[in-house]
Computed example of a mutant assay.
Amino acid sequence: MFDSSLRRALNAPLRAVAVTVDLPWVTPNRLTIAGLFLGLGSAAAAATQLWWWSLALWLVSRVLDGLDGTLARLRRERGDGVGSGAPDSEAGGFLDIVADFTVYGFTVFGVGIGATAAFNAPWWPFVLVLVAYYVNGAAFLAFSSIAERTNRQIDDGRSLSFFGRIAEGGETIVVHSLWLILPFFAWQIALAWAGWVGISAIQRIIVGYRALR
């Protein structure tokens, strides 16, 4: 919902960091992999009720998720070749979206394990979140694939072509942070979030279907 505004606000600080870490051995793909492992570490920390460690790892992983694309764009503007980690590689965009989905899924799983063990929370709200993620992801990935094939892409600087709705990356970062800060309310947050993502999925299905007719 506010991803476009968030990207504009973070563009300058992320670019400053990207300039700082723009070293030969630092590539966008390596930043993506680092973010993936930190995200998995966040999930493991949540599962063992190390909530503040989980929050720190989660936030750093999301910073790296934004930094990889920023570094890629910086190198593209400079005209670096693929061998130096330039963003022109479609493989990098593929790796990024797979890493995001992996981190999102495992962090929900980790919070679910930790909350049920520590606070006797019900497990089903976390399952609902995963189902909502699955449907939402299927909707925009299918749209992106068909839009690419039929030359109806939406070019907003991201690797995939999809409609922004009420649940995007910015909201996901906030909600995943919130249930790590308030783990005793994690299942209630998960229930509300599942509904929110579900509405977003329905929106994407309707708008995507109409756009491709």
Rank of each mutant, 00 (worst) to 15 (best):
2 F>Y: 13
6 L>S: 09
7 R>W: 12
7 R>L: 14
7 R>H: 13
8 R>N: 15
11 N>M: 13
14 L>C: 05
14 L>D: 10
15 R>K: 15
19 V>H: 07
20 T>K: 15
20 T>W: 15
22 D>S: 12
22 D>N: 15
28 P>N: 03
30 R>F: 12
30 R>K: 07
30 R>H: 10
31 L>I: 15
31 L>C: 14
33 I>E: 03
36 L>S: 08
40 L>T: 07
42 S>E: 05
43 A>V: 13
43 A>F: 14
44 A>I: 07
48 T>Q: 05
49 Q>E: 15
49 Q>S: 15
50 L>T: 07
51 W>K: 06
52 W>H: 10
52 W>A: 01
56 A>G: 00
56 A>M: 10
56 A>F: 02
59 L>M: 09
59 L>D: 10
61 S>D: 03
61 S>R: 05
62 R>I: 06
62 R>C: 09
62 R>L: 08
63 V>E: 02
64 L>N: 06
64 L>R: 01
65 D>H: 13
68 D>Q: 13
71 L>P: 09
71 L>H: 07
74 L>M: 14
78 R>P: 03
78 R>G: 10
78 R>S: 11
78 R>A: 15
80 D>E: 11
81 G>I: 08
81 G>C: 09
81 G>N: 12
83 G>D: 06
86 A>Y: 08
87 P>G: 14
90 E>Y: 11
90 E>L: 10
92 G>I: 05
95 L>G: 09
96 D>W: 04
96 D>G: 11
97 I>E: 04
98 V>P: 00
98 V>G: 00
99 A>G: 06
99 A>C: 14
99 A>W: 09
100 D>Q: 12
102 T>G: 05
104 Y>C: 11
104 Y>G: 11
105 G>I: 00
106 F>H: 08
107 T>V: 15
107 T>E: 03
112 G>I: 08
117 A>H: 10
117 A>M: 07
117 A>C: 01
118 A>F: 02
118 A>E: 08
120 N>F: 02
120 N>R: 05
121 A>G: 04
121 A>K: 08
122 P>T: 05
123 W>K: 00
124 W>M: 12
125 P>I: 02
128 L>N: 07
132 A>D: 02
132 A>M: 03
134 Y>D: 00
136 N>V: 13
136 N>T: 05
138 A>D: 08
138 A>M: 01
139 A>S: 12
141 L>M: 06
142 A>W: 11
144 S>T: 10
147 A>G: 04
147 A>M: 00
147 A>V: 04
150 T>F: 12
152 R>A: 14
153 Q>R: 15
154 I>R: 10
159 S>K: 05
161 S>V: 11
161 S>P: 00
164 G>T: 10
166 I>P: 07
168 E>N: 07
170 G>K: 04
172 T>G: 11
172 T>W: 05
173 I>N: 01
174 V>S: 12
175 V>F: 09
176 H>K: 13
179 W>P: 00
179 W>M: 06
180 L>T: 09
180 L>H: 10
181 I>E: 06
183 P>E: 06
184 F>C: 09
184 F>A: 14
186 A>M: 06
186 A>L: 12
187 W>H: 04
188 Q>T: 05
195 G>S: 02
197 V>E: 01
198 G>A: 00
200 S>Y: 12
201 A>D: 01
201 A>E: 12
202 I>A: 14
203 Q>V: 13
204 R>I: 03
205 I>N: 03
209 Y>R: 02
